[in-house]
């Protein structure tokens, strides 16, 4: 269905813009046909997206579930790092934070925009707004560690952990029973 949607969207764009390009006057009949094809492609695209969401909600091995697990893993790792950080050298702290940024937070960050449609804009903003703030604070902790400023590194890491915890709590409150 997705392929058909993409073909229709491409074809509709070509037809409508071709009709619009005509000089000196626009070929409105071609624009109308193109617009109709675009609408059909858009409807198919949205149906496909809905189908995928429903399939995702009914299967425990879905990407949505995987992302919930990723968020749990990030939160757990940040909490662990918070506990261990005071005893780490600044170099080790920066290394651990860099690994957290690329290996654990990176893939989750990549997948975040795909959850917009699944969660609805407002709920999505509530959950991932907190997560993104936490992520920024982890970046700040890395910067401070790299700059040799231990107090700020620890402060930022703890603040980041709090925001990520809040995101996890908000996500847990989201009605996705199959994924827990």
């Amino acid at each position: 269905m997705r392929l058909r949607a993409h073909v229709l969207l491409s074809l509709g764009t070509i037809l409508a813009t071709l009709g619009g390009a005509r000089l000196p006057v626009v070929e409105w009949s071609l624009v109308a046909v193109g617009a109709a094809v675009l609408v059909a492609g858009g409807v198919l695209h949205r149906l496909d997206a809905r189908k995928q969401r429903e399939a995702g909600a009914s299967s425990s091995g879905t990407s949505a579930a995987a992302e919930v697990e990723m968020l749990r893993a990030v939160s757990a790792e940040v909490e662990r790092l918070c506990e261990e950080a005071p005893a780490l050298s600044l170099e080790d702290l920066a290394d651990r934070l860099a690994a957290l940024e690329t290996r654990t937070m990176g893939p989750l960050g990549e997948s975040i925009p795909h959850r917009i449609a699944a969660m609805g804009g407002e709920r999505f903003a509530e959950v991932f707004g907190d997560y993104a703030a936490g992520e920024r604070l982890v970046h700040r902790a890395w910067s401070a560690a790299a700059d040799g400023h231990r107090p700020e590194a620890l402060r930022a890491l703890e603040a980041g952990a709090r925001r990520i915890r809040a995101a996890l709590a908000a996500l847990d409150a989201t009605a996705w029973p199959q994924q827990r």
Partner: peptide, 18 residues
């Protein structure tokens, strides 16, 4: 007229595929 056609196509593409 060309601005209008462009705006129509742009809106339909975004509403359809986001």
């Amino acid at each position: 007229d060309k601005y209008a056609v462009g705006a129509l196509v742009g809106a339909l593409l975004t509403f359809g595929a986001g």
